[in-house]
């Protein structure tokens, strides 16, 4: 009996467990970079060397021209544009949905092309800002045609394997008799000029 006096409560001392866990936790906190795999997705045209050199004339009215110079100043349809780039969204929507009403604007959404031309000295930040607004204009048009929110639309097109998403995708972009999209996202990113200045 007397021998058992000293060990009435056999317990492992677990008070340092928290310290060990803290150490591991801090290690992972420091090494963690929460992955940022988001951004603006664009398809690139094919290799220029293998493309046939077709001289296709696109009528002026079907082109919505945005130019940015090396000082990040913009020309929209040949006119200096100093407003908020967010206003481009509405301008592009009006241009695409013109359907031949205004003789200066596009024939139909299928032929409408938004052309973005920069200078070699344009900063990437400005380019992204304008590209973002062009894509926003198209995504908003698609989303309203498919009857979903714009954020929802972007999730839909990121996962086209779902049949339901595919269906909405076809509604949003519209499919004509030849199986082509009625509202293709025609964004042309031209090769930058070397004027500088």
């Amino acid at each position: 009996m007397a021998r058992n006096k000293g060990r009435e409560n056999p317990e492992i001392n677990s008070s340092s467990m928290a310290d060990i866990a803290f150490l591991l936790l801090i290690f992972f906190l420091v090494t963690t970079t929460i992955a940022n795999d988001k951004g603006l997705l664009i398809p690139l045209p094919p290799d220029p060397d293998q493309m046939e050199d077709l001289d296709i004339k696109i009528p002026e009215r079907n082109l919505f021209k945005i130019q940015i110079n090396s000082a990040d100043k913009m020309l929209v349809e040949g006119e200096p544009f100093t407003n908020d780039p967010k206003e481009l969204k509405q301008m592009i929507k009006d241009f695409v949905n013109n359907n031949g009403r205004d003789p200066e604007s596009s024939d139909n959404p299928q032929k409408a092309i938004v052309s973005l031309k920069t200078d070699r000295g344009t900063t990437q930040a400005k380019f992204i800002e304008v590209l973002d607004n062009i894509q926003a204009a198209y995504y908003e048009m698609y989303a309203s045609r498919a009857g979903v929110a714009t954020e929802e639309w972007r999730k839909i097109i990121d996962n086209l394997k779902e049949p339901d998403n595919r269906r909405l995708y076809d509604i949003g972009r519209g499919v004509d008799a030849d199986g082509k999209a009625e509202y293709p996202m025609n964004i042309s990113i031209a090769e930058p000029t070397k004027i500088g200045g």
Binding site: D37, G39, I42, L44, R120, G121, T122, T123
Partner: peptide, 26 residues
């Protein structure tokens, strides 16, 4: 602050290499 000139050079090379899905991280 990077300039478009350099980026478009990369884009041209990507087109030549047939890697045509491009994501600008934002």
């Amino acid at each position: 602050e990077a300039k478009r000139g350099l980026i478009s050079d990369i884009e041209l090379q990507l087109r030549k290499a047939n890697a045509r899905k491009l994501l600008y991280s934002t």
